[in-house]
Amino acid sequence: MFEDSPLDTDLRWEAGFEGDRRIVVSVLGPYRRIFPRPQRFVRRFYHRVYDLKIEDWQIPLEPLKLGTLCTIEAALSVRFQPTVKYAHANPDHIADLGGYIRANYRTLLQDAAEHELRQLDQAGLDDSNVLMERRIETVVNELLAVRDIQCRAWCTIQTVFADLDKIEEYAENIDSKHNGIYLELIRRRRQLNERLARENYERETNERRLRLEHEKRMLELMQRETELRKARRDHEAEHVRAELTAEETRAAEQYDSEVRLREARIHHETRLKQLELEADLAEKSRRAGALDDVENQLKREIELLALERQRLLLEEEIRDVKIAKAKGWVINAKRRFPLGESQKTLKPQDPGMTPHPDSD
């Protein structure tokens, strides 16, 4: 029922609960038998099966007041489970063993726990609440265990002290049996005041030290920030100088490139103009040669036209001469020959024959 706890040198209570604990009540005529339910249980019509449940139980305890000095408040919780033996001993309440246990042992457990609280003395103030809680838990566990009820109890205790600054005002109302507690509280108040003063001094000292450290860190931070700002400005200036140098280099390269392009363009344009000039000169030479040929041709044509004109004039003169000669011959013929003779003379000639003017 006890086991060693790794957190405490005291023994820990082991309840031994079982989650599937059940009992069987066999009622056949006037006979009744109670036994734990077997693993391979075949239920008959005369069997009744009841669960022995694990239940929680909150037991309120009356606070213990030590005059007007302090109040001790306790809360008790119990987790319990009836055993088969307890069910055998109480067959008439098998259907509700939990309620039967609460009704029968509530006052007993309250009295035992409150009795432990009333045993408080001056030495109890020096003990931690855990020890007092352990004593109450042990008493409750033992009371139920001897009655065949498996359980595990939890007790929590809270001690509420009066205002230590006004404890002298409560001195007249203190019972003589609590005089030791009164003196202990006075001692604790002094210790508390000293501890508070010491803690206050340590806190102020610590705050001053922290403030100085904070100011020192802030100063270091400001110095580091100033250095970083200066380094950033230097870096930015170096970056600007590098950009200016690069820009100047790019501008010089661009200017050189533009100069080379301009020179190449001027050279190209000069070459084109030279070629155009040569082409113009060639064209002009060709045209001049063509004009000379045309002029010569025109001269020849003019000469031919002049010759043709002279020929035509000559032919016209010849024709005129011939016409004049013909007219003169006709006139001479009319003069020499009369008209009748002329007709006679002309008859023997063939028609269409015209005498040549030079026939004479």
Rank of each mutant, 00 (worst) to 15 (best):
M1C: 06
S5W: 11
P6S: 14
P6V: 14
R12Q: 13
F17T: 02
E18H: 05
G19S: 15
D20W: 09
S26M: 03
G29C: 09
P30R: 12
Y31H: 13
R33Q: 11
F35I: 03
P38M: 06
R43M: 13
V49M: 05
V49S: 04
D51M: 07
Q58H: 12
P60Y: 06
L61M: 10
L64D: 01
L66T: 00
T71S: 15
I72V: 15
I72P: 00
A74Y: 00
A75K: 05
S77D: 14
P82D: 03
T83E: 01
Y86N: 01
A87H: 00
H88F: 12
H88E: 15
N90C: 05
I94L: 14
I94E: 00
D96E: 08
R102K: 14
A103L: 13
N104R: 15
T107Y: 04
L108N: 05
H115Y: 05
L117E: 00
L117N: 00
R118H: 09
R118A: 09
Q119M: 12
L120Q: 02
L125C: 08
D126N: 10
E133R: 04
R135M: 04
E137N: 12
E142R: 09
L143W: 01
C155I: 03
T156H: 13
T159L: 14
V160Y: 09
A162G: 15
A162F: 01
D163N: 15
E172I: 05
N173T: 15
I174C: 13
D175G: 03
L183Y: 10
R189T: 01
R189L: 02
Q191I: 05
L192F: 13
N193R: 15
N193E: 15
E194H: 02
R195I: 02
A197C: 04
A197Q: 14
N200H: 11
E202A: 13
E207K: 11
R208S: 07
L219A: 11
E225L: 06
E227D: 14
K230S: 08
R232H: 12
R232A: 15
D234N: 07
H235Y: 07
H235D: 07
E236Q: 13
E236K: 09
A237I: 10
E238S: 10
H239S: 10
A242N: 06
A242L: 11
A242Q: 12
E243H: 05
L244T: 08
L244N: 09
A246W: 04
E248M: 07
T249E: 13
E253S: 07
R260P: 01
R262E: 14
I266N: 14
H268L: 11
L272G: 02
E276P: 01
L277T: 05
D280G: 03
D280I: 12
D292G: 04
D292I: 09
R300V: 06
E301N: 09
E301W: 06
R311Y: 08
L312M: 09
L313N: 11
E316C: 02
E316G: 03
K322Q: 08
A326T: 14
K327W: 04
N332Y: 15
N332M: 15
K334N: 13
K334L: 06
R335N: 14
P338W: 03
Q343G: 03
Q343K: 13
Q343A: 12
M353H: 09
T354R: 06
P357H: 04
P357F: 03
D360Y: 07
